[in-house]
Design a protein around this nucleic acid. Sequence first.
DNA 1: GCAGAAGACGAGATCGAATCTCATAAACAT
DNA 2: ATGTTTATGAGATTCGATCTCGTCTTCTGC
Lengths: 149, 149
Amino acid sequence: MTPTTQRSGWAEQAARALTEAGYRRGGARRAILELLDEQACALSAQEIQRALGGRRRAVSRASIYRVMEELEAIGVVQRVELGQGIVRYEAVRRGPGHHHHLVCDRCGRLEPFTDAGLERAISRLSDRVPLKVSVHEIVIHGACRVCAR
Amino acid sequence: MTPTTQRSGWAEQAARALTEAGYRRGGARRAILELLDEQACALSAQEIQRALGGRRRAVSRASIYRVMEELEAIGVVQRVELGQGIVRYEAVRRGPGHHHHLVCDRCGRLEPFTDAGLERAISRLSDRVPLKVSVHEIVIHGACRVCAR
DNA sequence: GCAGAAGACGAGATCGAATCTCATAAACAT
DNA sequence: ATGTTTATGAGATTCGATCTCGTCTTCTGC
């Protein structure tokens, strides 16, 4: 097949997790997993549908939402909402690949960032909180260089 | 009037900011400001409409969304999206009152929290980021004590 | 292999939060 | 007061997300 991704085999892990959870194989799921594995940042359902329709295999909206729900349920995908009223999805990765988001509220530009200090603070916090923590999400809003001028 | 709030005069500050930005006074705005000032945590448009309809002065959906947009534009209100696909709004406060959110993904329970370490990390980060930062938002997802059992 | 059962998928209907339109009511300046 | 501008509300509209249900595919047992 294609060499697909530089970053480990997230898609393979996810596929395995699906199997273990009792799901069968399917073309839509496979296409979606491969696409998500290639992304550096979060995609909306619409973006996913377009990307898959262009190259690869077309997938219906219904399948996208359904598969995303399954992937989120088994913990390999995270929904993120970055302030434009639409839901985005991205692969959950540990270590490298794990990131958060900078959003330009004027042009909508989206950029990932990482920060060790922040992760440390969150990790410490996670133990003190009245919640069995699954994932966290940090969004920094502002004006990007172009828009701030 | 009512003693309204323990925490400074957020509503008054916001009203002043509106005036300075060239807006006139209006019943809907006033009611919304007072309601937001009393809240410990974020409210959805629907929750705002219900709360205002119950006591106080009924306000239309159109006005709620319009006023929220204005308040966000002048920086006194922040939109937050906590993962249920609906937008919530809350007063932007500095120091006490400033908080982030714990969300139970099973029952939807929403709880505010604060953490000095986190704020320090974010503040340091803000200087290094290619963005003129306005606000930040941290959401921790998990299962609350009741749901996790 | 092959047939049957169970699950995966897609097309289109449906839902509902958010937005838009436009007529009317309030606020402000003079 | 009076005219002008802005604020507000009722209802239509948009569009992302969800649901329905018939068809296609995968898997299991023979």
